[in-house]
C-alpha cells in the first residue's frame, strides 16, 4: 500500500470509506444506542478512543506479533481498552454506564475495530494507524449522531435531553422503538450511496 497523507486517511475514514454506510460494519451498536443523542455521543467517543489507541498499539507491536496468534493478541488489546472505557464511565458517568449497559462491553466485538486492525494497522506505522482509528471513529460517530438527531427529536421532542419542540408536537413512539433505527440507517445508506454514485459518474464523464 502506498503511503497516504493524513488528509487522505481522514477523508477515507469519515466519508468515502465510512465504516457504517460504506462497509456496513459495526452497526449493532450503531442501531441500539441511537434513541438519544447523549448516548450516541458517549458511545461514539468511547469507540473512537478504543479504535485509535488499539490501532496504535497493534501497529506498534506488529513486528513482534506472530502471524497465527495475532487475532488473539488484537482481541486482548481491544478488550483492555474497552475495560478502561467501562471503568471510566462507571466512575464518572454512572447513569450513562447503566443506560448503555452491555453495549459498552460490546465495543469489543464491534467489527470496526477488528477491521481497522486487520486492514490498516497491520501494514502501517503507529501514527498513521492512530489517525486512521480516529477518522473511522469520527465517521462512525457522525452517522450515529445523525440517526440519533432524528430519533430523539421525533421520538421525545428533545435534543440532548432539552425540550425543543413544544406541546403541540405529538411524539412518534415508533421513533424510539427498534424499527425506526433500521429505517433511518437504510435512508442514510440510500442518500450517501446516491451522492457518491453521482460523483463517481461525473468523474467518469470527465
Amino acid at each position: 500500500m502506498a503511503k497516504q497523507s493524513s488528509q487522505e486517511i481522514f477523508t477515507l475514514g469519515v466519508w468515502s470509506d465510512n465504516p457504517v454506510f460504506r462497509q456496513l460494519i459495526g452497526i449493532c451498536s450503531a442501531l441500539a444506542v441511537t434513541n438519544s443523542l447523549t448516548n450516541s455521543m458517549i458511545m461514539g467517543i468511547g469507540l473512537t478512543f478504543v479504535t485509535a489507541l488499539s490501532s496504535f498499539t497493534i501497529s506498534a507491536i506488529r513486528q513482534f506479533t506472530p502471524k497465527h496468534i495475532r487475532m488473539m493478541v488484537q482481541v486482548l488489546i481491544i478488550a483492555a481498552y474497552v475495560i478502561m472505557v467501562d471503568i471510566f464511565l462507571k466512575a464518572y458517568l454512572p447513569e450513562f454506564s447503566k443506560t448503555l449497559g452491555a453495549y459498552v462491553g460490546l465495543i469489543i466485538t464491534n467489527c470496526i475495530i477488528m477491521g481497522r486492525a486487520e486492514a490498516f494497522a497491520q501494514k502501517n506505522r503507529p501514527i498513521a494507524s492512530f489517525l486512521d482509528g480516529v477518522a473511522n471513529g469520527i465517521g462512525y460517530t457522525v452517522v450515529l449522531l445523525f440517526i440519533a438527531f432524528f430519533r430523539e427529536l421525533m421520538g421525545f421532542g428533545t435534543l440532548f435531553g432539552f425540550q425543543i419542540l413544544g406541546d403541540w408536537w405529538t411524539s412518534w413512539t415508533i421513533m424510539i422503538m427498534p424499527p425506526s433505527a433500521f429505517f433511518l440507517l437504510a435512508i442514510v445508506i440510500w442518500i450517501t450511496h446516491n451522492i457518491q454514485d453521482k460523483k463517481k459518474s461525473e468523474v467518469a464523464k470527465q
Binding site: 456496513l24 427498534p178 433505527a181 433500521f182 437504510a186 445508506i189 442518500i191 450511496h193
Partner: peptide, 18 residues
C-alpha cells in the same frame, strides 16, 4: 439504485421488527 444490497435489507429488517 442507491438502496440495492444493504439498504433494502435494512428496510426489510425494519418491517420485520415492526
Amino acid at each position: 439504485k442507491g438502496l440495492e444490497g444493504p439498504g433494502i435489507t435494512l428496510i426489510v429488517t425494519g418491517l420485520m421488527a415492526m
